[in-house]
Design a protein around this nucleic acid. Structure first.
Lengths: 229, 229
DNA sequence: AATTGTTTGATACATACGTTTTAAACGTCC
DNA sequence: GGACGTTTAAAACGTATGTATCAAACAATT
């Protein structure tokens, strides 16, 4: 830390973080091997221990590095809630969410790491939830609530939010399955755009139907099966 | 194979399969350790190699064992397509799907193994897709198509199906996240039943909205953003 | 009861992987 | 320009884990 003047500032450290991020995103924390990471980074295996102490330390550094820009992006987008329609805001939300999640570029690494943590939690799980999942979830909750028009219970709003993110995340979690079931589906910008259109339309219909069903349920006690027969 | 008369028929083998199934479901193929499995089965570590040749062989045996009853169940339910409403059939589908997926009992192990294969494929992936995912997917496709009333393109039917199963699978993939976002949610029969109600209502609304949007899109070229403003 | 094929138990082996060590190279400051 | 702290390189270490070995125990047939 004494060397604060020169510009290289440990180039290896940076390359390690970038290489590790790619491996962690593609393979997950456990499947990614330290030797593979350093090979991709063109560094020696001791570098990870020197710079980060351990594999977990490297993972923490990856998260911290990508957290910075990700949080910055989140706070930026929080501003433009202007005079948009609730449906338009949902469309923005889903499109942004899907683009970050499914886009193949090394950009928006954080979104993919968050998705990884969801299905294969590590020590960073709590932090991820607090810093990314909760804020994103609250933003979606607010949008859904405005669409539902205060008529949905807290619980049903939650369910709708989970239905929306579940639709999106499935394309990331189960890429291999999607590739089998829908071989024509690609992950380019245009494909993601069209997918967003579908998810938004589907979810808007879903939210409105939930509102209707909920109203019906409220009167007819809890007999269920509103639209089933 | 010469000893075909007595009833024990390798009790250890069976205990290994059951113990392994539990571990594979809970931890996945790679995270489940052979020594833990044999410990839970009360067997020796050599037994797995004798009976199954390898860890992969054990996994294959687990799949084969649970495939039998699972396929039997699938063929049974295929019969009762009777005079039900499309919506009722969707409700049956979703409820059955969720119950098998989320129920904590060792029953319906196959559904949980299939879910595991989706996010963490193994050598058995192809077989799983062919034997379970495709048939289930086609059944859902047929239901969605009858609900949509032949007005949806092949592609949009696919998207709707993926939206439906995505909603369901999210509760299994991301249990830890659901536990954080919705601490009150449980995985008991009543909770799953209510979740099914929501998913069905949401999806029915989603399908219908997709139909409407699709009709609108067909006329207004492909400018998108039908309900956004 | 003896023999033979089958199953189990304890241990050993081989490899993969995270981590640590030790020496050399590099850059900075006096 | 030399000394000292910093960074890298190569190899080694320890453990975890899947797999193989080999003798003992068991069951069945004659």
């Amino acid at each position: 830390m004494v060397t604060l003047s020169n510009e290289h500032e440990s180039d290896t450290r940076q390359r390690l973080i970038e290489a590790a991020a790619g491996m962690f995103v593609e393979q997950g924390f456990n499947a990614a091997k330290v030797r593979d990471i350093v090979a991709h980074a063109g560094a020696n295996i001791a570098a990870v221990n020197y710079h980060f102490g351990s594999k977990e330390g490297l993972y923490a550094a990856v998260i911290q590095y990508h957290s910075a820009q990700a949080i910055e992006v989140l706070s930026q987008q929080a501003g433009d809630d202007g005079g948009r329609t609730p449906a338009a805001r949902l469309h923005d939300y889903v499109r942004t969410f899907l683009k970050r999640l499914l886009t193949q570029t090394p950009q928006f690494t954080m979104s993919k790491l968050v998705a990884r943590e969801m299905v294969e939690p590590t020590a960073a799980f709590g932090l991820i939830i607090e810093k990314f999942v909760w804020p994103q979830y609250h933003a979606l909750q607010a949008i859904v609530r405005t669409i539902a028009g205060e008529k949905l219970s807290e619980e049903l709003v939650r369910r709708c939010c989970l239905s929306i993110v579940g639709q999106c995340l499935y394309y990331q979690f189960a890429r291999q399955v999607v590739a089998c079931l829908d071989p024509e589906f690609g992950y380019g910008p245009a494909d993601v755009e069209r997918l967003a259109e579908h998810v938004v339309a589907f979810s808007l219909g879903g939210i409105r139907q939930s509102v209707r069903t909920h109203a019906g349920e409220a009167q007819k006690s809890h007999s269920g099966h509103v639209n089933d027969r």
